[in-house]
Deep mutational scan, measured.
Amino acid sequence: TEDARKEAKKIIDNGGSPDEAAKFIKKYGLSEDQARELVKRAL
């Protein structure tokens, strides 16, 4: 979702790792793979 993508970008912009961002956005109901893909797109 757009919200999850924004959250991921915010985490990374604040110095978080892509892994942290992926873990965080899994709470939106995404699978591990979906979360990682979304983080990649957010970069």
Rank of each mutant, 00 (worst) to 15 (best):
L43W: 06
K6Q: 10
A4M: 13
Y28V: 03
G29Q: 02
R5D: 04
K9M: 13
G16I: 06
G16M: 10
R41T: 11
I11S: 04
D33S: 11
E2Y: 03
L38M: 09
S31C: 01
K10M: 10
L30P: 01
A8L: 13
A21E: 08
E20M: 08
D33K: 10
S31M: 02
E2P: 09
N14S: 12
K10I: 07
E20L: 08
S31T: 13
E7D: 12
V39H: 01
S17T: 14
K9Y: 04
K6H: 07
A22F: 13
E20R: 03
D33I: 10
Q34N: 01
V39S: 00
A4C: 08
K10T: 07
G29E: 04
K27W: 06
K9S: 03
A35M: 06
L30V: 05
A4P: 08
E32S: 06
E2T: 10
A42D: 03
R36G: 04
E32D: 13
E2G: 08
G15I: 05
A21P: 00
D3Y: 10
L38Q: 05
S17V: 06
N14A: 14
G29T: 00
E20H: 04
L38H: 02
P18N: 05
K6A: 12
I12W: 04
K9W: 11
G29N: 05
K27R: 09
A21K: 06
L38P: 00
A22H: 08
R36L: 12
K26H: 08
R41V: 11
E20N: 04
K6R: 15
A22N: 11
D19A: 11
I12K: 02
E32T: 05
K23Q: 14
I25K: 04
S31R: 00
R36Y: 12
K10G: 06
K6W: 09
A21H: 05
D13A: 13
E32K: 00
R41L: 14
S17Y: 04
S31H: 01
G29C: 11
A8W: 09
A35E: 03
N14D: 10
S31L: 00
K27F: 06
K10H: 09
T1R: 11
L38G: 00
D19I: 06
A42M: 15
K6V: 11
K26A: 12
A42Y: 14
K27G: 08
G16L: 08
Q34G: 02
A42S: 06
L30T: 01
R36A: 11
I12H: 03
A35N: 02
K10D: 08
A22E: 12
I25P: 05
G29Y: 00
K26G: 09
F24E: 14
T1Q: 12
A35F: 10
D19Q: 09
A22C: 14
K40D: 13
E20Q: 09
Q34F: 06
N14T: 07
D33M: 08
A22G: 05
E20F: 09
K6P: 03
E32M: 11
T1G: 09
K23G: 11
L30E: 03
E2V: 11
K9L: 13
N14W: 08
V39T: 01
R36K: 11
A22L: 15
I11V: 06
I12V: 05
F24S: 15
V39N: 00
R5Q: 12
E7R: 06
D13E: 13
D13L: 11
A4G: 04
E2W: 02
R41A: 14
G16R: 05
K9H: 10
D3P: 08
I25R: 04
A42L: 15
K27Y: 06
I25D: 08
E20T: 04
D33R: 06
